[in-house]
Measured scan of single mutants.
Amino acid sequence: KLPPGWEKRMFRSNGTVYYFNHITNASQFERPSG
């Protein structure tokens, strides 16, 4: 389970998975720990 605010997303163009935090508007490719 991801830390609060984080969700898994995917770029439609190339299928790359990334993680987005809707609380802080942060995004990263590494899976957030917590």
Rank of each mutant, 00 (worst) to 15 (best):
1 K>S: 14
1 K>W: 12
1 K>F: 10
1 K>T: 13
2 L>G: 03
2 L>C: 10
2 L>P: 15
2 L>K: 15
3 P>H: 00
3 P>W: 03
3 P>C: 08
3 P>M: 02
4 P>R: 06
4 P>W: 08
4 P>I: 07
4 P>T: 06
4 P>M: 08
4 P>D: 10
4 P>Y: 11
5 G>H: 07
6 W>P: 01
6 W>A: 01
6 W>L: 01
6 W>D: 01
6 W>G: 00
6 W>S: 02
7 E>V: 10
7 E>I: 09
7 E>D: 04
7 E>N: 03
7 E>G: 07
7 E>P: 01
8 K>I: 13
8 K>Y: 05
8 K>S: 06
8 K>W: 02
9 R>E: 06
9 R>D: 04
9 R>Q: 04
9 R>F: 05
9 R>V: 07
9 R>Y: 06
10 M>Q: 11
10 M>S: 11
10 M>W: 13
10 M>R: 12
10 M>T: 11
11 F>H: 15
11 F>S: 15
11 F>I: 15
12 R>M: 13
12 R>T: 15
12 R>H: 14
12 R>I: 13
12 R>E: 15
12 R>N: 14
12 R>P: 14
13 S>R: 09
13 S>Q: 12
13 S>A: 08
13 S>H: 12
14 N>T: 14
14 N>V: 03
15 G>T: 08
16 T>N: 09
16 T>D: 09
16 T>A: 12
16 T>G: 08
16 T>H: 12
16 T>M: 12
17 V>M: 07
17 V>D: 08
17 V>Q: 06
17 V>N: 08
17 V>K: 07
18 Y>G: 07
18 Y>L: 03
18 Y>W: 06
18 Y>H: 05
18 Y>I: 08
19 Y>I: 00
19 Y>Q: 00
19 Y>L: 00
20 F>R: 00
20 F>L: 02
20 F>D: 07
20 F>H: 11
21 N>Q: 05
21 N>K: 00
21 N>P: 02
21 N>R: 00
22 H>M: 12
22 H>S: 13
22 H>L: 15
22 H>Y: 15
22 H>G: 09
23 I>N: 07
23 I>F: 13
23 I>Q: 04
23 I>H: 11
23 I>V: 10
23 I>Y: 12
24 T>K: 02
24 T>I: 03
24 T>G: 02
24 T>E: 05
24 T>W: 09
25 N>K: 13
25 N>W: 04
25 N>Y: 07
25 N>L: 12
25 N>E: 07
26 A>W: 05
27 S>W: 15
27 S>T: 14
27 S>K: 14
27 S>Y: 13
27 S>F: 15
27 S>A: 12
28 Q>K: 02
28 Q>F: 02
28 Q>P: 00
28 Q>L: 03
28 Q>S: 07
28 Q>N: 03
29 F>D: 09
29 F>H: 09
29 F>A: 13
29 F>T: 10
29 F>I: 13
30 E>Q: 07
30 E>F: 02
30 E>N: 05
30 E>G: 08
30 E>A: 03
31 R>W: 10
31 R>F: 14
31 R>T: 08
31 R>V: 10
31 R>M: 10
31 R>H: 10
32 P>R: 00
32 P>A: 02
32 P>S: 02
33 S>D: 12
33 S>R: 09
33 S>K: 10
33 S>W: 11
34 G>S: 11
34 G>H: 11
34 G>C: 05
34 G>N: 12
34 G>D: 13
34 G>I: 12
